[in-house]
């Protein structure tokens, strides 16, 4: 059971959260002009590193806010959490 720090509510149990996969994947600004290959990248391709991973969580059973986190997928250790719009911590 992960312990996740919601940047709005503080530390809460994993069961309160919904996972949102890789962070910082922007919706293409002009989908109609996006080629099939780039569109497929947007739809289906996400980073999957063994190591620090910038990802999204939503405090579903709490404040219902989305936020970002960097977590090491080799240990599950959270290296930092930050609000939407804030830059990824170094």
């Amino acid at each position: 059971m992960l312990l996740i720090e919601c940047p709005w509510c503080g530390q809460r149990e994993e069961t309160e959260f919904r996972y949102g996969g890789q962070a910082h994947v922007d919706y293409p600004s002009a989908p109609a002009e996006t080629g099939d290959t780039e569109w497929a990248e947007f739809l289906f391709y996400r980073d999957n590193p063994a190591g620090p991973f910038a990802e999204r969580w939503m405090h579903a059973a709490g404040c219902r806010r989305w936020f970002n986190a960097v977590r090491d997928t080799r240990t599950n250790e959270f290296l930092g959490v930050y609000r939407i719009g804030e830059g990824q911590p170094a």
Binding site: M1, L2, E14, R18, R71, T73, R74
Partner: peptide, 13 residues
């Protein structure tokens, strides 16, 4: 488990 992980262990819930 919903999250990405290489830990070979999941959450006990």
């Amino acid at each position: 488990d919903a999250y990405n992980s290489y830990t070979q262990r999941g959450s006990v819930h």
